[in-house]
């Protein structure tokens, strides 16, 4: 029955990777900028929640704090776009990559300076303990993480299909110029996309913190989320989630069935294989230019 255990914990990890990857893809689709700091956004989201919820800080009720966290992280994402990213808009990818990596460093430093570098535990209602049944130990938190991700995916899907803002985001990401002609305020929409990415990062952070302790270096899982985003194809939202699940599942199974040392290699080996054989991911979006 190991398989079920590995499956659930792998899927739960995969959900977090997938949500961070979703953040990359949201921003990439809308602005063609890759936010290398998305993992650190997630870490920040977790720490902001911790600051609101934990008794040693503000000690608010979790459900009361949730909208506040989303507000703070949404505002943060919006401000990052407004104050930093907008000035390099249109410059080479190199500039944006370097800028967002630097942003990650600054965030890690700021969080470490405010909340310290010790691992901390979030008082999350998702910490439900373990379920033991017939030799199988299932972390209920893992199951909860999977459920929350499924719900969030549904909500996001409906948001992109039904709401005016969601449609505007889709339009702006498919063809900026055409969207602009249709009267969509492309720049403002891009700001909202960054805000949305901040909120998704906050959810990912809360889920991550519900499964264990967090510290300022938690943002490094962003690298695995990258692998996830690339495996799924950088321009596809369901692809990002699927990629996250694949990476999440590979890890525990490789750790279980491969010789020691190979489990860390597995996700990146898969990433490189995907880049070599299907350079634009399993759900490709790039087309050749017609002249």
């Amino acid at each position: 029955m190991d398989v079920l255990q590995l499956l659930v914990s792998g899927l739960a990890n995969g959900c977090v990777y997938g949500l961070v990857a979703l953040g990359f893809v949201l921003i990439y689709k809308a602005t063609e900028a890759v936010n290398f700091a998305q993992g650190d956004f997630m870490m920040l989201g977790a720490f902001v929640t911790l600051a609101f919820v934990n008794p040693e800080y503000f000690g608010l009720n979790f459900w009361l704090a949730l909208p506040l966290v989303f507000l703070v992280m949404g505002l943060f994402g919006y401000l990052v776009d407004r104050t930093v990213l907008r000035f390099v808009f249109g410059q080479s990818q190199t500039a944006i990559i370097i800028l967002t990596i630097a942003l990650g460093f600054v965030l890690r430093f700021a969080v470490g300076a405010i909340w310290g570098h010790e691992p901390q535990n979030l008082q999350s209602p998702l910490r439900l303990g373990d379920l033991r049944a017939g030799g199988v130990v299932l972390g209920l938190a893992d199951v909860a993480v999977i459920l929350v991700t499924a719900i969030l995916t549904l909500v996001l899907w409906q948001f992109f299909q039904r709401t005016k803002l969601g449609l505007a985001m889709q339009a702006a990401s498919q063809n900026q110029m055409a969207a602009y002609y249709m009267g969509i305020p492309v720049r403002r929409v891009q700001g909202f996309v960054w805000a949305l990415a901040g909120i998704v990062a906050a959810v990912a952070g809360i889920l991550y913190a519900s499964k264990g302790a967090i510290d300022p270096n938690a943002g490094f899982i962003g690298i695995k989320a990258f692998a996830a985003a690339v495996i799924g194809g950088f321009g596809s939202l369901p692809g990002a989630l699927a990629g996250g699940l694949i990476v999440g599942l590979i890890e525990p199974f490789a750790a279980r069935y491969l010789p020691p040392g190979w489990s860390q290699v597995a996700p990146y080996a898969l990433l490189i294989a995907v880049l070599l054989f299907r350079p634009h991911g399993l759900f490709a979006q790039v087309r050749a230019k017609k002249v």
Binding site: V84, A95, I101, A102, F109, A113
Partner: peptide, 22 residues
């Protein structure tokens, strides 16, 4: 000693350079 100060300052410096003196 402020842990992580180095990386933070590197980051801030880098942001400043990309924005103001590429």
């Amino acid at each position: 000693a402020i842990p992580g100060l180095e990386a933070g300052v590197f980051g801030a410096l880098l942001i400043a350079f990309v924005l103001f003196e590429p």
